[in-house]
């Protein structure tokens, strides 16, 4: 049960950590790597505040042992944009008041990022269905949905302009 080496990529940087097999990925990210974007909300696989992107899947990092992610590529909200270079989703959440307290936002944005990769022009219903694994206790979701639809438009506009 001793600690083992676990290697994965977090936001493009290769990491090599030592962890017991029972260590959950969310703890490795937050406590060992100081990647504190993903939050611990419910810790019971419901709320989605800990959502990270692993090899193209949205995953609740409270329900995965770090060692299961050995060899994967992990993206957190920190890897999606930076304060100087916000991702369209981050910009849209700011512009459309997609957050109030902000606790659920890293999970919301990380999940929405994957949703828009898979479905670049979702309907409102598809956004609501695709975001059903993320809970927000402030906004009533209306502005979150609005933000994601606006980000999709922005991303599609940028793409069209480039073509």
């Amino acid at each position: 049960m001793s600690k083992q080496h676990i290697k994965f990529t977090v936001n493009g940087e290769e990491k090599d950590v030592l962890a017991e097999p029972r260590e959950l990925l969310i703890h490795t990210l937050r406590e060992q790597l100081n990647v504190t974007g993903p939050h611990i909300g419910c810790e019971t696989s419901h709320c989605g505040a800990c959502t990270v992107d692993i090899d193209g899947k949205s995953v609740k990092a409270c329900t995965l042992f770090a060692i299961q992610a050995n060899g994967t590529e992990i993206t957190t909200v920190e890897g999606i944009g930076s304060p100087d270079d916000l991702h369209p989703l981050q910009k849209a959440f700011r512009e459309h008041h997609g957050l109030q307290c902000g606790y659920c936002t890293p999970g919301m944005i990380t999940r929405a990022y994957r949703l828009l990769q898979e479905n670049p022009s979702p309907t409102e219903e598809e956004v609501r269905f695709g975001m059903a694994g993320n809970l927000c206790r402030c906004t009533g979701y209306q502005n979150i949905v609005k933000s994601i639809l606006a980000a999709a438009d922005e991303m599609n506009g940028v793409k069209e302009a480039a073509e």
Binding site: S45, T51, V59, A132
Partner: peptide, 9 residues
């Protein structure tokens, strides 16, 4: 079944 994140796993 469940929600999108859970269905990926």
């Amino acid at each position: 079944i469940a929600d999108p994140q859970v269905r990926y796993m």
